[in-house]
Amino acid sequence: MTDGRVLDVQGLQAGYGQVTVLRDVGLYVDPGEVVVVLGANGAGKTTTLRAICQSVWTKGSIRVTGREMRGKDTADVVRAGVAHVPQGRGTFNDLTVLDNLEVGAYVRRDRKNVNADIELWFSIFPRLEQRKYQRAGSLSGGEQQMLAVARALMSRPKLLLLDEPSLGLAPLISQDLFRHFGAINREQGVTMLVVEQNANLAFAIAHRAYVLEAGMVSTSGSAAELREDDAVRRAYLGV
């Protein structure tokens, strides 16, 4: 059962320099799932995603499709099939929209399919096609977020990590973006691990959820269960 998992994290500790942020995190993501990570500021949500990509120090076990990633290079984690859309989007602002998508496919060898995928993302996000020779830095926040997601998916990842995709976006644009995520998950079977402050948005597409508190998993369960959980409702759904 565990072998089939896209992501299996056990006993994860992680942090920056002397500071330990994650004390003991265990979570998993099965193929085709959308899993959301909730938590207050400073609970360690972003650090969890960074730990998976090996951009911070880590202890414990991080398996991607059964292969241990701890101690590997970020470039190797990407090659193992993980794509990360960092907070603040991480687009290449000096590069054109088209070049951003090309870079997204950097680890791929199948040149022909890359062009087909670029066309695919242009058809999903027509705004990006209109701006394909513009520098990414000149796009609006929502467009940049679309570009960041399309860029990440250009690597045809087994697992997409999204870090607060709604941050700084207008509510309507966030909703639109999450509709896209839901569709991408259903239609293309892309597995996702989403960190999100806006639990309403996240629950709309999530299958399961984890709640982080002070660097540990405090609650976990199916999205339907957690949506009914009183503590979660008070803390993250604002009802």
């Binding site: 290079d73 990407v78 960092p86 991480g90 870079v103 950097y106």
Partner: peptide, 22 residues
């Protein structure tokens, strides 16, 4: 491709890592 990697890294080092550029 190596030229693209060059331009990507000089634009955004961290994102360069995250797309798998060594």
């Amino acid at each position: 491709k190596i030229g693209l990697a060059f331009r990507a890294v000089s634009s955004n080092l961290d994102s360069g890592r995250l797309v798998g550029i060594r």
